[in-house]
Every structure is written in structure tokens, then in C-alpha cells.
Simulated assay, not measured.
Amino acid sequence: MLFFLLLAPFALHAKAGTGKLEGVLHGYVTDAVTKKPLCGVTVLAFVPGTNSTKEVTTDSEGYFRIAQLPATQVTVQFDKKGYQSAKRPNVSIREKTSVRLNVEFLPEDVSSSSDHSDYPILRLLEAS
């Protein structure tokens, strides 16, 4: 019995090393009108076909980072009180890759018929 207890950590470590490689999603959220960073934006990454979600909040610079996402397509949702919710489906996460997603967030009080009707803009930039 003691022999198996001593081997268990090694077996778990070996199994973890052979699993799926993961990626990172990160970026900045800014106000679409003022172009200033938005802190406190909730960023959710949903993995389709599972109940798996990852949630983070933007910092004072509007920056967010979600690590350990599986190499698959995820849906990313951005929410903050006073702003229109934004969703980006089919964001491709690749093994050992960092994906950058910058968002310009439209305030709720800006109507869709205004000059800012093309917001929120979701721009996807990939970096390794």
C-alpha cells in the first residue's frame, strides 16, 4: 500500500504532462466614446459543449487575462453596468498561443442610431 501511495504523485504528474496544451486570451477594454480604459468589466469565456467557463475582471488599465483555456473555439462575453453587453463567438484558442482581443465598449445611453452605431468593436489580434 505504501508503495502505491509513493508512486501516485509521479503518476499524476506524468498524466498531466501528456494532456491537452492550453492557450491564453488577453486584451484591453476601453470606452468606445472616450477611448479610456474600463476597469471592472466582467469577461467570461465559455467553452462550447461543456459547462466550463472562466471569469475575470479587467484591472485599472482595462486589461484582462484568462489562462489555461483549452485549444478550441470559445465564446467571450463582456459585461459592465452602464454599458451594452458584448459577445464574441468562435474565438480560436490554439495550443501554446496567446490570443489578444481588444474591445471598445459602447455605453448604454448611446443609441444605436448615433454616429457610434458600429460599436462595440471587437478586434482580434493574434500573437505568439
Rank of each mutant, 00 (worst) to 15 (best):
L21N: 15
L21V: 09
L21R: 15
E22C: 13
G23A: 01
G23W: 05
L25Y: 09
L25I: 01
L25H: 06
H26P: 02
H26L: 03
Y28T: 01
V29W: 07
V29K: 05
T30I: 00
D31I: 00
A32W: 10
V33R: 15
T34G: 12
T34P: 06
T34H: 11
K35S: 12
P37M: 12
P37I: 05
L38I: 00
L38N: 15
G40I: 01
G40E: 09
G40T: 01
G40C: 10
V41G: 03
V41I: 00
T42A: 15
T42D: 09
T42H: 05
L44I: 02
L44W: 03
A45I: 00
F46M: 10
F46P: 03
V47W: 06
V47Y: 09
V47A: 11
P48C: 12
G49I: 00
G49E: 10
G49L: 11
G49A: 08
T50D: 09
T50R: 13
T50W: 14
N51A: 10
S52L: 10
S52N: 11
S52I: 03
T53N: 13
T53C: 08
K54L: 06
K54Q: 14
K54A: 11
E55P: 01
E55N: 03
E55T: 00
D59T: 02
D59I: 01
S60C: 15
S60T: 06
S60P: 03
E61K: 00
E61P: 01
G62K: 04
Y63G: 02
Y63R: 04
R65F: 07
R65I: 09
I66E: 04
I66G: 04
A67N: 12
A67P: 03
A67R: 12
Q68G: 08
Q68M: 07
P70R: 13
A71L: 14
T72W: 04
Q73W: 04
Q73N: 13
V74I: 05
V74D: 14
V74S: 11
T75C: 09
T75R: 09
T75H: 08
V76R: 07
V76A: 05
Q77A: 09
F78P: 05
D79S: 06
K80N: 13
K81Y: 15
G82F: 10
Y83K: 14
Y83Q: 12
S85L: 11
A86Q: 06
A86L: 14
A86F: 11
K87N: 07
K87R: 11
P89D: 10
P89N: 13
N90W: 11
N90Y: 14
N90Q: 13
V91N: 15
V91D: 12
V91P: 14
V91L: 15
S92H: 04
S92Q: 07
S92A: 09
S92P: 10
I93T: 08
I93Q: 10
I93D: 08
R94N: 10
K96L: 11
K96M: 06
S98W: 04
S98A: 12
V99C: 14
V99Q: 12
R100K: 08
R100N: 10
L101W: 02
